[in-house]
């Protein structure tokens, strides 16, 4: 199949700690941190949104790909926080990275898997030779209602991937499968500022069923075992769910932790599993195998088996790593956090 020829991550500089939110919610911060498996989350700058995050990640992906930008024939931005209800984020990002006008673009939405689905779309376009290169981006500035449990995890960030031919790839997609059903675990109605969720229902019949379902399907279809993979990334709505899935598949700490970026940045929604993938590509070596399974409420999971090639080594140093962005931070008070989220003006 096609593969990844360039990738880029982006996480805004600002953070709000679980302690800061817990103080306002009058909750026990230590219990929250233990329960959710995260200590802080990223917050966008006042002038950042899904489009600016997507652009930043795409520029880093281009720096790593080292291709003629005009050869890009498709660009897709997956998000549940597109700044416009009607007007494509993808065309603004395309203009900002300067790929000309000879390209197709569309914004996608499937909760947190809107970005990973576009990797499948671009791989199809590349393999059928409809385009030479396609850009796949997952980015979000996710919103949570003040006082809601989601407030501890709903974060901002994104990752971009340039998909191209197998022989140009730094990581070849060996196989990708999906597992999808109509499940009412989490949604946001049109014109509503904040999402709603079905509480505990978001676990067993939603996240776990689909992440486990897609991952099992991938292992079956590739005739591989979990121990064949150097790194394993599961979508990270919090730090607890991916660890629970890892336990079921007997994924080791060495396989899981390098991609478990949620603990210090929270759930970046469409960016979440993709940032985990970017983080493992930052340290991967030729020959390494990566398994990544996304999850989008509603519900579905896309699972990918990737093999890293010798092209990874040169690409890694050409842009900042995911860890560089995780380490760059400035903490905000709860009041300033609300201002950044435009909850108060």
């Amino acid at each position: 199949m096609a593969g990844i020829i360039g990738y880029g991550a982006y996480i805004p500089k600002y953070r709000v700690s679980a302690e800061e939110i817990a103080a306002v919610q009058e909750a026990n911060a230590n219990a929250i941190k233990r329960g959710l498996g995260l200590t802080e989350k990223s917050v966008p700058g006042k002038d950042e949104d899904t489009i600016t995050i997507a652009t930043h990640a795409a520029r880093d992906a281009l720096a790593r790909a080292g291709i003629n930008k005009k050869d890009i024939g498709a660009i897709y931005v997956g998000s549940e926080s597109h700044p416009y209800a009607v007007k494509p984020s993808s065309a603004i990002v395309a203009e900002a990275i300067g790929i000309g006008n000879d390209y197709t673009a569309v914004d996608t939405e499937f909760a947190c898997k809107a970005g990973s689905a576009t990797i499948q779309i671009n791989a199809g376009l590349v393999d059928s030779k409809m385009v030479k290169y396609g850009v796949s981006i997952g980015a979000d500035t996710s919103q949570a209602e003040p006082g809601n449990a989601l407030e501890y995890s709903a974060a901002a960030g994104g990752a971009a991937f340039i998909i191209g031919s197998n022989k140009e790839s730094l990581a070849i997609i060996d196989k990708t499968v999906s597992f999808t059903s109509d499940t009412p675990d989490f949604w946001r109605r049109s014109m509503q500022a904040y999402p709603s969720h079905a509480g505990r229902f978001t676990g067993e019949p939603a996240y776990f069923k689909h992440v486990i379902g897609a991952t099992k399907l991938l292992l079956e279809k590739t005739k591989t075992k979990i121990e064949d993979y150097t790194y394993v990334v599961f979508h990270m709505p919090n730090g607890k769910f991916p660890r629970a899935v890892a336990k079921i598949f007997k994924v080791t700490e060495e396989q899981l932790v390098p991609g478990l970026v949620v603990e210090k940045i929270g759930n970046t929604y469409s960016g979440s599993s993709l940032l985990g993938l970017a983080a493992v590509l930052d340290i991967a070596k030729p020959g390494d195998k990566i398994l990544m399974t996304s999850y989008g409420s509603g519900s579905g999971s896309d699972s990918f088996a990737l093999t890293v090639t010798e092209k990874i080594t040169e690409a890694q140093g050409k842009a900042r790593t995911t860890q560089d962005y995780i380490d760059r931070k400035e903490y905000l008070s709860y009041a300033k956090y609300l201002k950044h989220m435009e909850t108060i003006h």
Partner: peptide, 17 residues
């Protein structure tokens, strides 16, 4: 250089980057 929002033209207007 970074790509950022400049301003919004009110509640209904375009967002300028």
């Amino acid at each position: 250089a970074v790509f950022r929002k400049f301003y919004k033209s009110g509640e209904k207007g375009a967002i300028h980057y």
